[in-house]
Write a protein that binds this DNA or RNA. Structure first.
Lengths: 243, 243, 243, 243
DNA sequence: GATGAATGAGAGTTCATTCAT
DNA sequence: CATGAATGAACTCTCATTCAT
């Protein structure tokens, strides 16, 4: 009996997972508003009541799916970061990971966020207190960590405005994905990962550049300073001579 | 009599405008999905049939409102650009204008775009063929023009990847606005224009930097150094005379 | 001026006719219920108000179109009957004419009658007093005339139940047309006139037969009588011999 | 408890039946187009949603009611045919049954068919594939069976064109009913069954006549002649004896 | 007589959610 | 804890008809 005890929990978990997967699949194919809870129940092979026994409401289901995506983003990011040493490597990896994960399930995360904001955005105070916002913060704080470490290691400038960098980083990728989708050739139906990664790179390049504590630049500046110093010294020499 | 002739046309335009304003107002306050066509008709002081005589459907109304915003963005941008000379000035102005206009009506444009994408985003081919996409392109091409002119005038580098810059520019502002809203102090209910402009500036700074022609900058720096040296030399000359 | 006087009337008549034709065309293509008065007005190139200045209501328009069909049926029948001599010829012609005319405009008459009956049939008293019923009676009375003349000329039996013949005649053709349409080969999109006429013929044959005052049958009877007579004569002969 | 188990299914069936009966009753009294689904729900004592949980749409409800009529026609016909021996008896019974059943509920079947054809008749391919057409075929094939058996038993001619007979049979009855309704005396509000059966008989007579095997009839005639001849011969014999 | 904007009741249908079983 | 029938408010949209111009 003890061996069978965990079963109910497992069954329960399986059911929950089935419903989630059914919802993800339907939302991805038809959109949130065009997928009814009845359809979700049917697709999950459970009754309509069961959906509501497992999830408070349809919009709660939406939130949980979005959270799941953020968790996935965070997990893949954290796992990947472990192997990356050096700030630039980590920075680039975060971008690649982000653009690849958000493109999953036909860009479902972005579409669901659009749904979420289309219903809740007016109530931004709600958003701030929402668990979605919290998950989003947890995830994006990985970016912050990477940058902060970069600064600490003097790889990056000290006077970086972090929030601006974050917005540039995540905002441009999400906006860029939309642009890319809209400009797909008619025959194409998908964006391949290589294309996405390459694009992510072209967006990150300027951001990185602006943060970089460039050795090159420092040495150039030093050179200029040296030249200036030399001239000033010559002036000083002349003054000395006069005195 | 001749003076009263134009009335019918005006009346018709007025009614249409009334409906649009009512819709904008309701969408802004309650969101698109929670504003019914009945409410809109009532708020506009017309019958429900009149709404549908003037607009094909509720979603057509949505599209027209979004288009209106893009037209407003383009018009204010075009008018403002006339007085701005110099690429940097224009670039900064575009950012300020963008962030100010999208913050109007409680960030209605962004919320309506979220609605639009939440329903249509899966069908990106639809989006590409939609009039909204066309309006958006017309507007964002102003940015392209400014950058291209900057390149032509050698103020900007030649090898700029325009689409990446565009996505950084518009994407970071829209993402940034969301972040700012989510982080408003509880007592605040609005973002004031100054704050917005300042933020736009901090987002634009790195983008500009990455595009700027460093040849230009170097010569400017050199110029400054030279000027400094000259002044010092003149000072030295005067000292020489005095002594 | 005297020459231009008739114009207004003509114009008015033209308008009316345009509206009628537009309605017929739309009803034929989309059905009565799916054709709005707005569409009709547009197709006729007039305003919506004009439709209602010329026809009391949409259903009045329907009735007038149905009446027009009955008039057409009557006119073509009357004109055709003039050249047909002999009851059988006229009878066959009526059938051919009927089936050909009702097949016009994609069987519009039948479809419009279905509309009419679907809305008014419950109120059969209304139907009896309606002008459609009157027109229908005027038309079908041509059949009655032909039969009555046939009886008068001894071509048809005296004890024919006219109403039953009429119902067999018109009922079977209309029902038969429906059957034929339902059993069209998939590649066919129309019933050609020859097929229709042939079918009309196979429906009419039994009806005619039942009414015919057959010469053939009389002659067969004569033959039998002759045979009988011959035998009697032989019997008489034998009697003569005996005597 | 076991006894109460089947309840849910029964309840469900009862509800469905209630809705059907409510719809039949309302359609019969007010016509299909003038009976709203709201009214039907109210009359059935259920909510509007329940109507649509049980029937896909209002027009599906229409189709199911029509199918019910066809089933009733078939069932009463099949049951009745069992007791009828001889082709003529069966043929007459089919006619009586048909005209009696279609006159039920104020001729609802015919009126609902009019509704159906008024909406779908243009799309005859749809009709052919519709379940209504199938039910109608199943029912009318009973007529075909009776006739084929009659042919097999040599009671009917071999060269009968079955489809024409079918169209004459069913077409004339339905057309005839319309005529009768339109010519009811004002004080009458119903057609009584005797009248209907008598009329059915007068429509069937010519159809039967045209199918009847004349061989059969001829042999009967011959028999009569033979009998006659025999009698004459007997008379002649007697005469011979006397002489 | 022509116009066509305005009407507004009413239609069919959807759907998240509840709750008795 | 699962079920799924029942709910009923709410939705967008249609359309014949009117009437001021």
């Amino acid at each position: 009996m003890a061996a069978t005890r965990p079963k109910p929990e497992n069954r329960s978990q399986e059911r929950r997972e089935k419903i989630l997967q059914a919802a993800i699949s339907l939302f991805s194919e038809q959109g949130y508003h065009h997928s009814s809870t009845r359809q979700i129940a049917k697709a999950a092979g459970v009754s309509e009541g069961t959906v509501f026994n497992n999830f408070e409401s349809k919009s709660a289901l939406l939130e949980i799916i979005i959270q799941g995506f953020y968790e996935r983003l965070r997990n893949t990011a954290q796992e990947g970061l472990v192997n990356k040493h050096g700030c630039k490597e980590q920075f680039d990896f975060l971008a690649e990971n982000h653009i690849c994960v958000i493109s999953e399930d036909n860009f479902l995360l972005m579409r669901l966020l659009a749904v979420y904001f289309s219903e809740h955005f007016n109530f931004y105070l709600d958003y701030r207190n929402s668990s979605i916002f919290k998950h989003s913060k947890i995830y994006t704080s990985l970016f912050d960590q990477v940058i902060r470490e970069g600064i600490a290691r003097k790889e990056l400038k000290e006077d970086i405005k972090l929030s601006a960098m974050r917005d540039l980083f995540f905002g441009s990728m999400e906006y860029g994905v939309r642009s890319m989708l809209a400009q797909l050739e008619t025959e194409e139906t998908e964006l391949n990962q290589e294309k996405l990664k390459a694009y992510a790179h072209s967006l990150c390049q300027p951001i990185w550049q602006s943060m970089e504590n460039s050795e090159d630049q420092r040495s150039k500046d030093n050179q200029k300073e040296l030249n200036l110093c030399e001239r000033l010294e010559r002036i000083a020499d002349r003054l000395e001579e006069k005195i």
